[in-house]
């Protein structure tokens, strides 16, 4: 069992002036080095949870511990240095007038010396494949490129955790692919913990573990295989299931033999062929 890098215990939270809980008795752990996807329809509380992990909200009840720091005013800046966040709207998190200025912004805030900064800006942009865009202005970049710059800004601070708050939901398919590829690559290169809040199936099905939120509470938790087994239940929650799961379901109704629930098309194609045609 790997050590927990984040632990959330019985957390409750309401927005000021609201009676309904945005988070209701949420408990969950994140292991060091894992890729966790948090899914849920709009308004399920997933973005509230994301903001709490970054100390932008504090729990009304319950405890949150991140990288051994309890979530409290005095540690919030330590937490923010270790947990980098990429937000949904590529435009509204781009602070610098050029790519390199934007990557440097977080470094400047943390008082990193100039020489180190220059090195880290270059190295981070290299890692997300945006080094050629050093002096580009944001309005000349595509959404996917802006998000990669945002990721560079996060990794420049050498965090332990990177949190994607619907970071791909405003992108076109190409941009989405760019961003996911980048994150996957970064995760392989070093021992990053990734939390992605999403309703993109592609993104969720590649995670090590999925947590389904509904109405501010944890509805289910499990591996992608386990979660997508829920099929109809997820659809009722306003979510979708991956294509192979949907197809398997329909094929079974037509008396095809499909042994288990596959998440990849490749596996399903093989299963379909070997157990139904190749006889």
């Amino acid at each position: 069992m790997k050590e927990n890098i984040i632990s959330i215990n019985h957390v409750h939270f309401r927005y000021p002036g609201q009676t309904v809980y945005a988070l209701k008795d949420v408990s969950l752990n994140v292991a060091k080095g894992e890729w966790l996807a948090i899914v849920g329809h709009n308004g399920s509380g997933k973005s509230t949870l994301a903001k709490m992990l970054n100390g932008l909200h504090y729990p009304e009840e319950g405890q949150v511990t991140i990288c051994n720091f309890p979530l409290k005013d005095e540690f919030v800046w330590d937490i923010r240095r270790r947990l980098g966040m990429v937000f949904q709207n590529p435009d509204n998190q781009f602070v610098g007038t050029t790519v390199q200025d934007d990557v440097a912004f977080g470094l400047e805030n943390n008082g990193i010396p100039h020489e180190v900064m220059v090195e880290r800006v270059k190295a981070s942009l290299q890692r997300v494949g945006m080094l050629d865009f050093l002096n580009q202005e944001p309005h000349h970049l595509s959404g996917g490129q802006k998000q990669r710059v945002a990721i560079a800004g996060v990794i420049a601070l050498q965090p332990d955790i990177i949190l994607l708050d619907e970071a791909t939901s405003m992108l076109d398919p190409r941009g989405r692919e760019e961003v996911l590829r980048t994150v996957r690559q970064l995760k392989e290169e070093q021992d990053l913990t990734v939390i992605s809040i999403t309703h993109d199936l592609e993104e969720a099905s590649r995670a090590d573990r999925i947590i389904v939120l509904n109405k501010g509470s944890v509805y289910r938790e499990g591996t992608p295989e386990e979660i997508f087994q829920l099929n109809e239940e997820l659809i009722k929650l306003g979510l979708d299931v991956p294509f192979p799961v949907k197809l398997s379901e329909i094929l079974r109704l037509q008396d095809f033999e499909i042994a288990s629930n596959y998440l990849s098309e490749e596996e399903l194609v093989r299963e379909l062929w070997t157990s139904n045609f190749k006889k």
Binding site: H41, N42, S169, M170, H199, G238, L239
Partner: peptide, 8 residues
């Protein structure tokens, strides 16, 4: 439908 959840 950009940015909406699957049901929407």
């Amino acid at each position: 439908t950009a940015g909406l959840d699957p049901r929407g």
